[in-house]
Nucleic acid binder design. Structure first.
Lengths: 223, 223
DNA sequence: GATGTTTGGTGACATTGTCACTGAACGGTG
DNA sequence: CACCGTTCAGTGACAATGTCACCAAACATC
């Protein structure tokens, strides 16, 4: 692990900044550590600062008025909470919350500093707008998936993504149902079918991928 | 209709700008008119300019790889295409398109001018970020609806919204199905049920609202 | 009137969501 | 270890929605 003081260099989108801007960011930010399963932001918890994630991931999910839950997206290391933060600050009738999925290390930048940077640095503007754009297009894709994609296809895709190349995924049927915005029973049935086909093995609280190729083929069934 | 040259004043979010900024916007923008049913932006059609809508509405919808369609949102007079534009410029694998639903009059602002404004004017930054935030929260709500809300509730809501207070809505079952991202047959069945209850009357290409109160009650069924 | 297109209706069936349960697996505790 | 409460998963019946293959009426055009 490198020094935290040069965190700006580790952001692909921020490396283009000119030196004074980098120094401003470094000087005016503080490194914070957030324990696992902490709510980073959420109803009644508007953060004072914009976070730039150095380590760990933040899961952004929504609790519907009907009590249902769905995972909207994740903020990974190298990305910032800016848009989510800004968004939630502006409209307090939101229902989304951000939860640290692991220990999270982040650089906290005060809002005034953020505003100054947007005003003063074109590369920083580009970074912010690129992040916004990516988030919007991702949400477009997500709407498309939720509305039109079959559950088995989405589940296969999610299993592969969550595995990150590992052999097994530590999760429950309940958690998987929240990932896809469906019901636990649906996940149970689909996983049974996958198991029947020999694509996975199940244990309490974990799914082992036995045939990643077949899962991938199903996940690619876009048409 | 007032003079087009003072369009900035007619934007609630832009009225706070200082005089030089307003003058810059006015001077460096051109008023454009777009015929009904024109594609304002879309695959292979990245606009050169940021549009600020003075009149009319732009419908933003998505064509899925499966051939399904869904309306994402509308840009009304007083709002700007900025985010959609920026978003689609950045990621060309998008599938969203913007279509003028009526004759649209808009102020076109070149990208460089837009960037200068963001850099130089705090009120303008606030306008832009507020627009982004609103869009994101709206998309969050939409995901929630698509994933968890019943079709009858969503249809009742959509009929009321599309009516804009008028007695009837000129649309087809097919178009309504795209609004909700469902199938035409589903719309046909739901409308039949509404008609059976005396809430609406149907004619080819139009739906007449007979009992707005009942529809509203159903639409409010959030839990 | 003949023809083609758009719009809407219908039945059969597949998929997904909901509800009310059941029991197994796990983590305590005495 | 036995006991107990909690979490996790399985099941069947049924409702809601999506898909498919049609059909028929309304409309536009010639």
């Amino acid at each position: 692990m490198t020094e935290d003081s040069d965190w700006v260099e580790r952001f692909p989108g921020l490396s283009r900044l000119d030196l004074p801007t980098k120094q401003l960011l470094t000087k005016r930010s503080t490194i914070v550590r957030v324990p696992k399963n902490t709510m980073v932001f959420g109803p009644g918890k508007s953060p004072e600062n914009m976070l730039f994630l150095l380590d760990g991931t933040v899961r952004v999910q929504q609790v519907s008025e009907t009590g249902h839950q769905i995972v909207l997206y994740r903020i990974e290391a190298g990305q910032s909470c800016v848009l989510t933060t800004a968004c939630l600050l502006a409209y307090d009738d939101y229902s989304a919350e951000g939860i640290a999925e692991s220990v999270v290390k982040a650089a906290a930048v005060p809002r005034e500093v953020f505003d100054d940077l947007v005003a003063g640095s074109k590369p920083f503007r580009d970074f912010v707008f690129a992040a916004f754009s990516k988030r919007l297009t991702d949400l477009f894709l997500m709407i498309d998936e939720v509305a039109f994609q079959r559950v088995d296809v989405r589940l296969a895709d999610k299993l592969i993504k969550l595995s990150s190349g590992a052999d097994s995924v530590s999760t429950t049927h309940q958690k998987l149902s929240v990932e896809l915005g469906t019901a636990r029973e649906v996940i149970s049935r689909q996983l049974q079918e996958f198991q029947r086909r020999g694509w996975i093995e199940q244990a309490r609280g974990s799914v082992t991928l036995k045939d990643r190729q077949q899962l991938q083929t199903l996940a690619n069934h876009n048409a």
